[in-house]
Design a protein around this nucleic acid. Structure first.
Lengths: 230, 230
DNA sequence: CTCTGACAGTAATGGACATTACATTTATAT
DNA sequence: ATATAAATGTAATGTCCATTACTGTCAGAG
C-alpha cells in the first residue's frame, strides 16, 4: 500500500516538460494544437491507427476497452495535466483502447512527426514518456488484479479510493468525488452490471458509507470504505 | 487476435543481444553469472530489493503475485531464451512479483552495476529492454482482462491457447503441452480454485477436447478450445 | 519397499451476481 | 414545454462457483 502510493505519487509528479528553456516551451506550444473538447467526445477509437499523442490540460478522460463479448471496461479515468495515447508516437500500431472525454476540457495533440522534432530538441524526453507509460500500465495492471477475487462491493470500494486520488474535494468528514459517473460507468469500472451497481450503491448509502449530492458521490466514511477494500 | 499474435511474435523475436561484436559477447559472458536452477527454486520474492536482472537460457519460469487475500495468481509462464526481472536494474524498487522455476534450467543473473557497464558499451540496450518489458506487461494486462467476464471453463481455454505459444509439441491432430502443471497451478493461472479446476478439466476431457498423457496435458481439439475462448 | 505428503476426485451447500423484465424518474433536445 | 431518451430502481430466477469436508491416489524420500 505504501509502495503503491509512492508509485502513484511518482506518476503524478513526473513532469515531462519540466526544466525546459523558454524557446523549447515556445516550440512545444507551436507544435501542439490545442482545442476544447466536450463530454462524450471520442478522442480515439480502439483499432485506430492515428499517429498522435495527447495532452490533457483540463477536464477528464477515460480510457476504455471493449472486450470480444461486448463488455466495456474502463481501465483508467484521469484529470489534471497529463499525457496519454503515447503509443501513437512511440510504437505506432492499432490502438487497443479508446479515449473518451468524461468532462469538458482542453486537449493538445501532437503528430508523430512533430513529436520527433521535439525529441531532437529535448533529450531525455522519450525516457520520461516511457516511464510515464510504464507507471500507467502498472496502475492498470494493479487495478485489474484488484478486481479478481473480490465482490462487487469491495471492487466499488477500491474504485472509490482510486477516484479520490484525482477527483476529491473535502466535504464534511469525507470527500465529494467531483466527477459525474453513471451507474453504468461504475459497472464498467468494476467489471459488473448496472443493476448490481445500483443495488450495491444504495446498500452502501443506507449504511451511511456514501451519499449523493446533486449526482455527485460523497464518500462519507473513508476509513470504512478502506477497510472494505482491505 | 491478429494484432495480438503480431505483438507476441514481436516479443519472441526481440533479441536484446543481437548484432553484437565478439568482444561484446565476451563481456556479457564475463559479467553474467550462469547457474543451473531446479524446479521450485524461488529466484526472487515479492518485496525483495535485489538489484539484479535475470536471463532464462533453459527451463521455464513463472511470475506470480500474492494478493492481500492470500490468493496466488500466476501472471506469466515462459520458457526459451528471454529476460525477466528487469525492474531490478532499470528502476529499482521493491519487487511486486515473485519468480519461481517450474522446470529445471539455466539462469544468468547480472547486477545493476555490471548492467550499467554493459549499457555504456552497447547503446540502445535500454531501449530494447524497455520494449520487452512493455510487451510483457501488455501481455499480462490482456491476460487479466481475459479473466474478467468469463467462466472458469473459458478462462482455462484461453490459458491453454496461451501455453501453446511456449510449450506446444504436435501430438496427433493436436498438441501436447510440454510443461507439468498441477491443478493448483491451473487454478492460479485462471484465478479460480483447485476443486473447480479438477471438475472442469475432467469435463473437458470427457468431452474429448483435451486429454492427459503421463501428466502432460494434450489439447486434442484446438479449434473447439479456441471457440470456447472466443 | 513402504511411508508420507502432495496431488486429485467428488459432492453438498450456500452465496454472489448476471440475467431478465418491468416501472419510474430524470435529462436533454427540439 | 413536451417528447424522447437516458438513467435509475426493484425483484425473481437460475447459474456459476467458492467453500467445506471428505476420500482416494501417486510419487519420491528414507
Amino acid at each position: 500500500m505504501t509502495q503503491e502510493r509512492t508509485k502513484l505519487w511518482y506518476l503524478k509528479n513526473l513532469d515531462i516538460f519540466s526544466r525546459l528553456t523558454e524557446e523549447q516551451y515556445k516550440l512545444i506550444d507551436k507544435l501542439a494544437a490545442m482545442r476544447p473538447v466536450k463530454k462524450g467526445e471520442v478522442l480515439y477509437f480502439q483499432g485506430a491507427t492515428d499517429k498522435k499523442f495527447y495532452m490533457l490540460k483540463k477536464g477528464a478522460v477515460k480510457i476504455t476497452k471493449l472486450t470480444s463479448h461486448g463488455n466495456e471496461i474502463i481501465l483508467d479515468i484521469f484529470s489534471g495535466v497529463t499525457l496519454f495515447g503515447e503509443i501513437g508516437v512511440l510504437n505506432p500500431q492499432e490502438r487497443d483502447e479508446s479515449a473518451v472525454v468524461v468532462e469538458d476540457g482542453l486537449i493538445c495533440t501532437m503528430t508523430k512527426e512533430d513529436f520527433e522534432k521535439l525529441v531532437q530538441m529535448i533529450p531525455g524526453l522519450v525516457i520520461k514518456m516511457t516511464k510515464i507509460i510504464g507507471l500507467r500500465r502498472w496502475k492498470i495492471e494493479n487495478k485489474l488484479l484488484g478486481l479478481l477475487y473480490r465482490t462487487v462491493e469491495q471492487r466499488l470500494a477500491i474504485t472509490f479510493l482510486n477516484l479520490l486520488d484525482d477527483f476529491s474535494i473535502p466535504r464534511g468528514d469525507g470527500y465529494l468525488l467531483k466527477i459525474k459517473l453513471t451507474h453504468k460507468d461504475f459497472a464498467d469500472l468494476v467489471a459488473s452490471t448496472r443493476e448490481t451497481v445500483t443495488v450495491t450503491l444504495n446498500k452502501l448509502k443506507s449504511e451511511g458509507l456514501i451519499d449523493f449530492e446533486d449526482k455527485y458521490l460523497v464518500i462519507k466514511q473513508v476509513d470504512r470504505i478502506r477497510s472494505l477494500a482491505e
